[in-house]
């Protein structure tokens, strides 16, 4: 399934920055420099950006302009980073956020039960 639009009937060829690599939950993935992290992840098919603190609900892109803060993830170690307005850079690390910590720091059993419930 191609999620990127390469030729658009009105916008023509969509111009992008250079291709760069970054890590998403430990895996090396590619995006285009300058585009928001959320868009790069969307193009890769990532839907869940984080799990909420209280009810452990999955959340993803909602407003895409930095208002709703639903798409926050741990970026370069900083939690609550709004991925929709943070640009992709070569070598950056992006991690799914659980509560306010990276998913990798949460034990699986806790993940299932919902943390800090």
């Amino acid at each position: 399934m191609e999620r990127r639009i390469t030729e658009h009937p009105i916008l023509g060829t969509i111009e992008k920055g250079r291709k760069v690599s970054f890590t998403y939950d430990g895996k090396t993935v590619e995006g285009y420099e300058g585009e928001p992290v959320a868009e790069a992840l969307k193009a890769l098919g990532v839907m869940v950006h984080r799990y909420t603190t209280k009810k452990h609900r999955p959340r993803g892109i909602f407003c895409a302009i930095g208002r709703c803060t639903d798409c926050v993830m741990v970026v370069d170690g900083v939690p609550n980073t709004r991925t929709c307005i943070t640009s992709v850079r070569e070598g950056m690390t992006v991690e799914t956020q659980v509560g306010v910590v990276p998913a990798s720091q949460v034990k699986d059993t806790v993940l299932k039960g919902g943390i800090m419930a």
Binding site: M47, V48, H49, R57, P58, R59, G60, I61, F62, C63, A64, I65, C68, D70
Partner: peptide, 11 residues
């Protein structure tokens, strides 16, 4: 409505 995949039109 808080599931990923529900988005605003602006998004």
């Amino acid at each position: 409505w808080d599931l990923p995949g529900v988005i605003g039109a602006g998004a």
